[in-house]
Design a binder for these strands. Structure first.
Ligand code: FES
Ligand code: FES
Lengths: 140, 140
DNA sequence: CATAATGATACCACATTAGTATCATTTGTC
DNA sequence: GACAAATGATACTAATGTGGTATCATTATG
């Protein structure tokens, strides 16, 4: 098994955002097409399109339709948090919530296992909390 | 989404082991049948059977075939680690390893995201490390 | 109006997890 | 030894989630 903290959606989204942020720093305000992203990042085009559309809907990107259209970042890289990207594609971050027979386990309060899982969840949230595209680009 | 740290297999296994350990403390050396477990824990019988068989194969349980047969713990509850149970059903514990096009990402060493994920993985492993059925039973 | 871009949406493929079904083998009891 | 009651082994099915395609509608530019 490999417990997935980030799915492919998120991963691709982050890569795309990083690329866009990096390019932006060279050519200010430039609009970027799916075609360019696909060429540079090598992801399946229709999948990436869907991802960008979601980022647009979530207002992390701004899209421009029609000829000469494309996408650009809706805000500076330092204000794009990966927790937000994760939420878009994966929903709110949480670990197992001990369901049993469709009900939440009544033993939650007392359960030792649960305490451990909650500690892990807290730690993970804390780790991811401040991370933005900028930090990822800078490698720190 | 809910990132799964423990799957249902593992969950059921742990519950069964807890039950068996608890019962053992009353009636020493008693052998326990699937029938009893199903009745007490309310899990689907064939599924639980498969789980117990795996625990047996992994030598956490000892089985006895034939009439009057059943299962008993192969060792004291304090020596049954949930990390081991997790491995049995889920394989070695690890988080995402940033695959891209079937290759491990070449950027791993430098990747900031990766660092965060590794920290989370380490923390999680540490949290789970010493936990045994005994601690779970005792709630600490 | 043609073209080149995204928007919206429905669909398909694949892997994993969860669960079922069946038959073989062993063991105790009469 | 026959029968019943238990597990062993194994193959199959179902449900879910993720990853990915395909198609058509809409919009903007020139
Ligand atoms: S067994 Fe349900 S929260 Fe632990
Ligand atoms: S992008 Fe591959 S390890 Fe981070």
């Amino acid at each position: 098994m490999a417990t997935k903290i980030v799915t492919r959606n998120t991963d691709y989204a982050v890569r795309a955002l990083c690329y866009m942020a990096a390019r932006e720093s060279k050519e200010k305000g430039g609009i970027i097409t799916v075609t360019e992203l696909v060429k540079e990042l090598g992801m399946p085009r229709p999948f990436l399109r869907k991802i960008l559309q979601k980022l647009n809907a979530a207002e992390l990107l701004i899209s421009k339709k029609g000829k000469g259209g494309g996408f650009r970042l809706a805000r500076p890289a330092g204000k794009i948090f990966i927790t937000v990207v994760m939420e878009i594609f994966q929903g709110p971050f949480k670990l197992n919530d001990c369901m049993f027979k469709r009900k939440i386990c009544p033993n939650r309060k007392a359960c030792f296992m649960r305490k451990k899982l909650e500690a892990i969840e807290k730690f993970a949230a804390a780790q991811l909390k401040g991370v933005t595209i900028r930090e990822i680009l800078n490698g720190r």
